[in-house]
């Protein structure tokens, strides 16, 4: 499989000269064609900012990409003129958000919103755009799609709105779909509907999906590969089975252990001590050192690098450093 998206040494910072918040502090990863990759982490780890950087939607002027490149099929998206980004957003890369209500316009009908995307990107007439919209709504599981075109968003439930968002995102056949916490606001039974739909879409369209979530259950349902982020950095990249079978980084281990399991009994939950570092906090050495159970001297002085273990696996931890092994 060839590479669709390549992110190299991306740094997105906030603030001014006096105080800099490094929301993303040098991340590298690749997404192959047709692959579903999950980006996991807790609040404030920079996972949503990663998606906004890819979309060119980092809130300016306080936030900016200070370094690095984002290559979509070889074209660098960083610094691309806004005019060209218009052609890419919605067409090449589409995005769905956590809150489907706030991402739909309440004063326009579903039909207006769906067709305007299609008319803009696919350069077709109104009639044709409507047919395409109906086709997409059918695909995401609506039964009377043509009637739905005349409805307003407030008439729909949360799950239905999220399905409309998926229909809209998929209507121009994007190469990459970024799903930022797509099921977090939904109930479990509705979440199940949306997850089934996303599985179907990734299979039928062979679209690459970048799934951003904090829910390891959802990750395990959808993703093939997982990127774990902590405090603006990638701490581990692994194939899904490897990650849950034998997590390497102490943070990943802690994260998996902390989740109460629906099957089986645990006497006491594992918990990572302490808190996520505050944004802008300057930390010397490894950012996880203060909470890590396996911390040693070197961790507090030096920052470990993201080290490639094998073809599919990387980890940022001195425990897996050859020097330490010797």
């Amino acid at each position: 499989m060839s590479t669709l998206l390549e992110v190299n040494n991306l740094k997105t910072h906030f603030g001014n000269k006096r105080r800099v918040v490094k929301a993303i502090d040098g991340i590298d990863f690749k997404i192959k064609k047709g692959e579903t990759v999950a980006l996991v982490g807790e609040s404030g780890c920079g996972k949503s900012m990663t998606s906004l950087s890819i979309m060119g939607l980092v809130p300016a002027p306080e936030g900016r990409i200070v370094d690095g490149e984002i290559l979509l099929e070889g074209v660098d998206l960083v610094g691309l003129p806004e005019k060209r980004m218009y052609g890419i957003r919605g067409k090449e890369i589409a995005m769905i958000f956590q809150e489907p209500m706030t991402s739909l316009n309440p004063v326009l009908t579903i039909g207006d919103q769906l067709t305007s995307v299609i008319i803009h990107h696919l350069k077709v007439g109104k009639k044709e755009a409507e047919n395409r919209a109906v086709e997409m709504l059918d695909l995401v599981g609506f039964s009377d799609s043509r009637k739905l075109l005349k409805d307003y968003p407030h008439r729909l439930s949360g799950g239905m709105r999220q399905r409309v968002m998926i229909a809209m995102a998929m209507s121009c056949n994007p190469k990459l779909l970024i799903a930022d916490e797509p099921t977090t606001a939904l109930d479990v039974t509705i979440q199940a509907q949306v997850l089934e739909l996303m599985k179907k879409i990734s299979k039928e369209f062979s679209t690459s999906i970048l799934l951003i979530t904090h829910d390891l259950g959802v990750v395990s349902e959808l993703a093939e590969r997982v990127i774990v982020m902590y405090a603006g950095q990638i701490v581990e990249i692994a194939d899904i089975d490897d990650l849950f079978k034998s997590p390497f980084h102490p943070y990943t281990v802690g994260l998996i252990e902390s989740v109460p399991k629906i099957e089986g009994e645990i006497e006491r939950l594992y918990s990572i001590p302490g808190n996520v570092p505050a944004p802008g906090e300057v930390i010397q050495g490894c950012k996880f050192a203060a909470r890590c159970s396996k911390v040693f001297d070197r961790c507090r002085k030096e920052m470990p690098t993201l080290r490639k273990m094998d073809e599919s696996r990387s980890v940022r931890c001195f425990l897996y450093d050859d020097e330490e092994a010797e």
Binding site: A192, L216, G217, S220, K261, I262, E263
Partner: peptide, 20 residues
Amino acid sequence: LSAVPVIRNTGVQQKERIVL
């Protein structure tokens, strides 16, 4: 219960999902 996504390799198979 069947709708809850299960983390892999916890020694259990995902139950046959009943999608309401």
